[in-house]
């Protein structure tokens, strides 16, 4: 069994309105040292797979087909044994 952690964020260059709103809210709490706030989502699941290469290939396919919309989003994959 493996655990897959997928992070999906808007691509750099695609305006992240939620990140901007959170940044403003943090600034209003006087956290003036904050910049580059991005809001994304994390999808976590177990994967019945022993071989890391196969797991990575599967999760990449999942991201390309469903978990991310690659027109606007980038994704990262982390596998934990």
């Amino acid at each position: 069994m493996m655990k897959a952690i997928v992070n999906v964020f808007l691509k750099a260059g695609v305006l992240d309105s939620q990140g901007k709103a959170v940044h403003h809210a943090l600034a209003s709490l006087h956290f003036d040292n904050v910049s580059n706030v991005r809001v994304g989502k994390q999808i976590i699941f177990s994967l019945d797979e022993k071989e890391e290469k196969k797991a990575m290939a599967d999760v990449t396919k999942m991201c390309e087909e469903l978990l991310a919309n690659t027109v606007i989003e980038d994704y990262t994959i982390e596998l934990v044994k």
């Binding site: 808007l10 695609v14 305006l15 309105s17 939620q18 709103a21 919309n69 027109v71 606007i72």
Partner: peptide, 8 residues
């Protein structure tokens, strides 16, 4: 693609 409205 369609994103969240800019005003949220």
């Amino acid at each position: 693609a369609l994103k969240r409205n800019e005003s949220l």
